[in-house]
Amino acid sequence: MDLNVTNNLWFEIALVGIIFTFGNILFGHFEVNTPKWKRIMKFIFFTVAVCVLSYHFGREAGLSFLGLLLLPVIYIHAVWLPKKGINGWTAEPKEKYYKLRGWENKL
């Protein structure tokens, strides 16, 4: 009996789920006006992509892909948004952030 509970794709699914959960809790205010269906499809797409990579090319490939995806996120929140005058952690001032995203300001 194999007691290694991380030796299947459920580990990847759980990991993507945990990352998206924390991402939504900490950075959900950046997606406040994004339609719910787009947010759901993003989660499904990345879960499937990581699982397909892990299945066909090994866990290292799937987790490397997931890790590499964090690089643009870090760059956007730590460098690009502050250059635009927007706080990369709080998305403030909201007026600037909404304008950048092309959203109607409902404040």
Rank of each mutant, 00 (worst) to 15 (best):
Y97R: 07
N87S: 10
T6Y: 11
E12L: 07
S54N: 07
A14I: 13
L71K: 01
D2C: 03
A14G: 14
A49I: 13
I76Q: 09
C51G: 05
H56Q: 15
T90W: 05
I25C: 05
N24G: 15
P35D: 04
N8C: 04
G88A: 11
F43C: 04
T6S: 02
H56S: 11
E12Q: 09
L53F: 15
G17V: 06
T47Q: 02
N4H: 02
G102R: 09
F27N: 11
S64T: 15
H29P: 00
A49V: 15
N33F: 13
A61N: 08
F57Q: 08
H77E: 12
Y97N: 06
A14S: 09
E104G: 11
P93S: 08
E104H: 11
D2I: 04
N7W: 00
P82H: 08
W89S: 10
H29D: 01
L68H: 10
H77I: 11
F20S: 06
L100A: 10
P93A: 02
K38Q: 15
W80A: 12
Y75M: 11
L107K: 13
E104W: 08
K84G: 05
A91E: 10
L63K: 05
A78V: 12
R39Y: 05
T47Y: 04
V16P: 01
R39W: 02
I19V: 14
K94P: 01
A49F: 14
E92D: 13
K106R: 15
G85M: 13
G58Q: 09
T34H: 00
A49C: 11
V16E: 03
F30K: 02
H29E: 02
F20Q: 01
L26K: 12
T21W: 08
G67T: 08
N105S: 09
G58C: 10
A49E: 07
L70V: 00
K94Y: 01
S54A: 15
V48H: 00
L9I: 12
F43Q: 04
W10A: 06
I13C: 06
A61W: 12
V50W: 03
C51E: 02
G67N: 07
L3C: 04
N24C: 07
T34M: 06
T34F: 04
W10Q: 06
E31W: 01
G67H: 09
K42M: 07
V79T: 07
Y97C: 05
G102K: 10
G62R: 12
S54Y: 11
G62P: 14
M41F: 08
L70S: 11
F11C: 08
C51L: 05
A78Q: 15
F30L: 00
L68N: 10
F43D: 01
G67D: 10
G17H: 04
F20D: 05
V52D: 05
I44R: 00
L70G: 15
L66T: 10
L26Y: 13
E95K: 15
V48D: 00
K42G: 02
W37H: 15
V48R: 01
F65V: 03
T21E: 01
F46C: 06
G28Q: 06
G102T: 09
R59M: 14
L107T: 09
